[in-house]
């Protein structure tokens, strides 16, 4: 990207900056337990809880930093944090 004046002309370019590699634990959802209350979506600091038509579809692993807030806040304990590299 060529250097212009110090104004970023395009919105949302940070999406190209993937922060998923920061993660040591990743969230995994058990859809049998999930009630789609979307509390995890509301509390995700990284816009990494994927929701489609009101349903939790998974996580944006390219950007999720693995903070664990979603798992901690899930009222149904449907999300668990799994160590990266393990199933």
């Amino acid at each position: 990207m060529p250097a212009r004046i110090s104004v970023i002309m395009k919105p949302g370019t940070a999406k190209e900056y993937e922060t998923g590699s920061w993660r040591s634990m990743r969230p995994v959802v058990d859809k049998d337990k999930c009630i789609n209350c979307l509390v995890c979506w509301m509390y995700c600091p990284d816009n990494s809880v994927l929701v489609e038509k009101g349903e939790l579809k998974g996580f944006r692993y390219s950007h999720c930093k693995g903070c664990g807030i979603c798992a901690n806040q899930c009222p149904k304990k449907a999300i668990t944090m799994v160590e990266e590299g393990k199933e």
Partner: peptide, 21 residues
């Protein structure tokens, strides 16, 4: 057409912006 004025510059860009000036 949203623009971001006054973003943070790391060494990769600061010098070029000063050069433009």
């Amino acid at each position: 057409e949203p623009h971001a004025f006054g973003p943070f510059d790391m060494p990769e860009y600061y010098y070029e912006h000063k050069y433009q000036q």
